[in-house]
């Protein structure tokens, strides 16, 4: 098996409301996989369960053959999981550069600067304001920084939670472009969620549809 990420039967409910029931998702190495579902369908719950930000009531999360279900979030992140939450969540006082370096510092990466340079090859857009505090950036620029941060952290798998949600069309196109270039580089394994097919359909190798906490494999769209 070449699966980088396997989610098996993950379930989670909040106060009786089922957010996810028996989710099964597999992402193979080098693949871009999409998760499509309406708001509240359980996309974010799935992402957070993979990160370890919430513990699933049942089910398993397997990363490169290793069962990480019981591993705390920071240990999973150190295995090379890069997470880009929908609401960006940068550290506002810190410059963009530090925001991207944080996950590398956290895991004690020796050549953090080299990794930063590598990330900037894919997201050169943010190079001009590396020294600026994150709070001085526009929402769109922040989105790119959040992507760059996830990229720096996620050498094994990238989890992008609704990157296209609520962004201007130009930026959405740019984001898709970056993801595509990552796909071409062939080393990035990406799980990306969205509320409709608009941006994801052309991009992904496979799609899952998630509805009311249940996931169904959707028709493959063929290579983007």
């Amino acid at each position: 098996m070449n699966a980088v990420l396997e989610v098996r039967g993950v379930s989670k409910s909040f106060g009786g409301v089922v957010a996810a029931a028996d989710l099964d998702v597999t992402v193979e190495r080098g693949e871009i996989v999409g998760i499509i579902g309406a708001n509240g369908a359980g996309k974010t719950t799935l992402m957070r369960a993979i990160c370890g930000l919430l513990l699933a009531a049942r089910g398993r999360v397997v990363l490169d053959g290793r069962d990480v279900t019981r591993l705390p979030a920071h240990r999973r992140a150190r295995l090379g999981v890069g997470y880009m939450p929908e609401d960006r969540r940068l550290v506002p006082q810190l410059p963009v550069r530090d925001n991207i370096l944080l996950p590398l510092w956290a895991r004690g990466v020796a050549d953090a600067e080299a990794r930063l340079a590598e990330v900037l090859r894919f997201v050169p857009d943010i190079e001009p304001f590396l020294a600026r505090p994150a709070l001085r950036l526009s929402g769109g620029q922040q989105k790119l920084v959040a992507l760059a941060r996830a990229l720096a952290a996620g050498e094994r798998v990238l989890l992008l939670d609704e990157p296209f949600e609520g962004v201007a069309p130009a930026l959405a196109r740019r984001l898709a472009e970056i993801l595509e270039s990552l796909g071409h580089a062939g080393q990035r394994t990406i799980l990306v969620s969205g509320s409709d097919y608009t941006h994801t359909a052309g991009l992904v190798d496979r799609l899952y549809a998630i509805e009311r906490g249940r996931v169904e494999p959707a028709a493959p769209t063929g290579a983007g």
């Binding site: 705390p72 992140a77 150190r78 997470y83 969540r89 944080l102 956290a106 952290a153």
Partner: peptide
């Protein structure tokens, strides 16, 4: 500072 600002995101970044 990252922890102060957003404990959860800090964890997701690999901060113990």
């Amino acid at each position: 500072l990252a922890v102060i600002h957003d404990r959860e995101m800090a964890m997701a970044m690999g901060i113990d």
